[in-house]
Design a protein around this nucleic acid. Structure first.
Lengths: 213, 213
DNA sequence: ATATATACCAGACACTTGTATGGTATCGGC
DNA sequence: GCCGATACCATACAAGTGTCTGGTATATAT
């Protein structure tokens, strides 16, 4: 009859939801007094019991002696980081320079694996056959350790480009996923090429609005 | 000589970064004492002055008399919500039932516009020509107010489906974006069809790993 | 020299907040 | 009835915390 993960009582669930709301609205955990007010209780002791119960059920963690020391353990809210979205410079050449940050998007780096370190807006159709379209946003893991066949962000001088990676000794081929484009061949003995990262995901904001009948 | 947006002094910037770190690590803003300890100061007054300066420069907001009443205004961290990702039930029919939540992803609902309320995993190729592939994740804005030509999540009984929306009086056509699939025709006088929401974005985790030479 | 901004310290006060103790009441199961 | 879980109240204390007053010191600009 014992559930391994004890369910919170209705009142406890209500407290839990209030904590989530408060966190989202104020950016900090509530005090016992805050919760008591929201629950229309006359003092803070009832809340304290509910918090203990929730802590016992591993739904929150209480840090003793710390003001607002309530942590949500399995809740709907958490902290995400703003990842830079690199766009295109005026000249038309995409770079990863700081002044080329188009926006910053709020998302969890751990949403992708390996984690995403920055975002890059795609320009052009050169990776169409890999289902990467113009204006798509790519999530990129910053690493230089990539394998043949992976889609990478490579930089030649100031110009960043997204291509399939294929290396054979000194010869690096950056292959588009579109027959209409030509692969880029680099002799690493004569030209430098920096691998900025590995493409780990894709984000598309907005979808085709209308469509022919 | 005056900048409209005054820059924080080096020390102030350091305080700001510490606040961000603390928030991310503990899930709550620091106290003046916390900051003083981290900055290796012997008391809290210096911190207080820095906080006032930062507040004057609109980089943080201070709520008077409130423990940990420090809010970041233009910072790297913010609160995101876990959005439910609906998958497919065992039977193979995608539904929006609660027990069909495949995962919960941490992302900002405001990343998409209109905002995303839930996520839905795509199964099948029926929307291929709209660049929506099998296993893609769609961001969906929960609304019933949709227009012809938009991509919507519609539900007939228990079965949820993603299609182009086209309505003409009593007749609702749910059209795939793939010539190999047939449109679904619904007579709204005889059959009920619930519009669950509007597709506002797309998320793809992981990309084709390898590729033929 | 004077003014201003920045940076830090010491001591003190009052409100906020976590914590403890002890009590009442309701409900459901045994 | 008896028990346990849940839910709430009142009072009190100690530590946490924001805030105030009044200093010192260092740069930089005027």
């Amino acid at each position: 009859m014992n559930t391994l993960i004890p369910e919170p009582s209705p009142r406890q669930r209500q407290v839990l939801e209030l904590i989530e709301q408060f966190l989202h609205r104020h950016g900090r955990p509530p005090t016992r007094a805050d919760l008591a007010r929201l629950m229309k209780l006359r003092n803070r002791q009832g809340i304290d019991q509910h918090l203990r119960a929730l802590a016992g059920k591993r739904l929150i963690a209480l840090e003793p002696g710390v003001a607002r020391g309530i942590r949500l353990l399995q809740s709907s809210f958490a902290l995400a980081r703003r990842l830079a979205l690199y766009g295109r410079v005026a000249a038309g050449v995409p770079t990863l320079a700081l002044d080329n940050i188009e926006d910053e998007l709020l998302l969890d780096p751990a949403l992708f694996r390996p984690r995403a370190d920055f975002l890059l807006r795609v320009h052009g159709q050169s990776m169409l056959d890999a289902d990467i379209h113009d204006r798509d946003i790519l999530a990129v893991h910053r690493t230089a350790q990539v394998s043949n066949g992976q889609i990478v962000v490579a930089r030649l001088g100031d110009e960043a480009t997204v291509k399939y990676y294929r290396r054979n000794g000194h010869l690096l081929r950056l292959e588009p996923a579109n027959a209409a484009f030509k692969p880029l061949e680099v002799d690493l003995r004569r030209q430098q090429c920096v691998i900025e990262g590995l493409v780990v995901g894709l984000l598309r904001r907005g979808l085709p609005q209308a469509r022919k009948s």
